[in-house]
Computed example of a mutant assay.
Amino acid sequence: MVGIVDVAKKEIVSAKTILVVVPDITNPFFSKVFRGIEAVAVTNGYQVILGDTGNDLEREKWFLNLLHQKKVDGMALLTAQTDAATVEEAAQRFPLVLACEYIEGSNITTVSLDNISGARKATEYLIDLGHERIGCIIGPLNSVLNRDRLKGFYQAMSCNNLIVDPVLVQEGDFSFESGFNLMMKFFAIGQLPSAIFAANDEMAMGVIKAIKSKGLKVPEDISVLGFDNLKFSSIFDPGLTTIAQPAFEYGEKVAEFLIRLINKEEIKHEHMFLANQLIVRQSCQQYVKNF
């Protein structure tokens, strides 16, 4: 039987128990990763307990301390705000798998996406459509995931000899509201791109809402491309072109690795990169210059 509880409020008794720590369970991406972990764990006779940090560093450290107290058999960490040394030390002593993000130079067993190639693929798609003035709304840059997505954006622009206007690169927080507000900022300062690459689908949807609020159309006036391929992206208006992440598969691989670590089995590849895919829908179109 699966136990999903707030571990900050209830005592944990270890009985083939895996703790999954997420930064924000209301984010559909993390919910889907959790379901993938749960599916494999249940099959192997493990309880799954959810720990939601709410993007709070101290809460993340509290969850990590449960490993030291041996109240859980292993941990899947879907966030990495804690300093690298602390996470490394925990991973050396206890079964721990890092997912979605990674720690540069570490030997922690990790399952992640090649975010650089994903963002580069997204930006190159916009460039292939004829866009040159492309904006980028990135997620929090204290995360290696977002630094990699920004790096991929810059790589694509540089390889095509395109200049990035610094005003058109803005840091959001992955929420719909930040996508909306940052697009409104572009309107306020009078600096409009012909296309926007948003580092997740929720921000991309916020961007589209802002564009529509100004009486403009997507993609006729401004093209928008997201990242994640959330379920709602296919039924949004217009359908969102995006980079798909295999979220459920993330979870499955994390659980497989974690159970092997718990059983002290060998893992040949400490860092697994999962493939990404461009999903083309209706939110982007060919750019035609008006002379």
Score class of each variant (00 low, 15 high):
214 K>A: 07
187 F>K: 06
187 F>E: 08
149 R>Y: 03
94 F>L: 03
32 K>A: 00
233 S>C: 09
192 L>P: 08
86 T>C: 08
172 G>V: 02
229 N>V: 06
271 H>E: 15
88 E>Q: 11
235 I>P: 07
87 V>D: 03
22 V>C: 01
247 A>H: 06
96 L>S: 05
260 R>I: 11
75 M>I: 06
275 A>F: 13
219 P>M: 08
268 K>Q: 13
180 F>G: 06
291 F>H: 14
123 T>N: 00
135 G>Y: 07
250 Y>G: 03
107 N>S: 12
21 V>C: 00
153 F>Y: 07
251 G>A: 04
93 R>M: 12
93 R>L: 12
6 D>T: 02
258 L>A: 07
168 L>V: 05
137 I>K: 01
237 D>N: 15
101 E>H: 05
119 A>E: 02
283 S>R: 07
176 F>C: 00
115 N>I: 00
282 Q>F: 06
49 I>R: 09
36 G>C: 03
130 G>R: 10
183 M>E: 02
123 T>H: 00
242 T>C: 04
74 G>C: 09
60 E>Q: 06
274 L>D: 07
119 A>V: 07
187 F>S: 05
64 L>D: 03
230 L>D: 05
203 M>G: 07
231 K>M: 11
24 D>Y: 01
4 I>Q: 13
23 P>T: 06
56 D>K: 02
107 N>L: 12
11 E>R: 14
22 V>N: 00
76 A>Q: 05
41 A>V: 00
61 K>Y: 14
267 I>F: 10
98 L>S: 02
290 N>C: 13
171 E>H: 05
288 V>Q: 14
290 N>V: 14
142 N>P: 02
67 L>F: 00
10 K>F: 15
52 D>Q: 04
109 T>A: 14
263 N>W: 10
261 L>I: 04
23 P>S: 07
24 D>A: 04
213 S>R: 10
230 L>I: 01
236 F>L: 09
266 E>W: 12
262 I>E: 02
224 V>N: 01
177 E>S: 05
180 F>N: 01
282 Q>W: 05
55 N>R: 11
14 S>L: 14
175 S>F: 01
236 F>Y: 13
146 N>T: 06
145 L>V: 07
220 E>G: 10
180 F>H: 09
185 K>L: 11
75 M>E: 05
51 G>A: 04
126 L>M: 06
135 G>Q: 03
136 C>M: 11
265 E>D: 11
15 A>Y: 15
159 C>P: 12
289 K>L: 15
6 D>W: 02
3 G>P: 15
167 V>G: 15
159 C>Y: 15
245 Q>E: 00
23 P>H: 02
144 V>E: 13
59 R>L: 04
221 D>Q: 08
286 Q>A: 12
143 S>V: 06
141 L>N: 09
26 T>L: 13
251 G>Y: 03
22 V>K: 01
215 G>H: 08
272 M>A: 14
37 I>V: 08
85 A>F: 07
135 G>V: 05
131 H>Y: 06
269 H>N: 15
61 K>T: 10
14 S>W: 12
177 E>Y: 02
154 Y>N: 14
5 V>G: 01
182 L>I: 00
231 K>W: 07
110 T>D: 02
123 T>L: 06
4 I>W: 14
226 G>P: 06
274 L>C: 03
43 T>Y: 15
9 K>G: 12
49 I>Q: 11
8 A>F: 12
268 K>P: 13
30 F>Y: 01
291 F>M: 14
236 F>V: 02
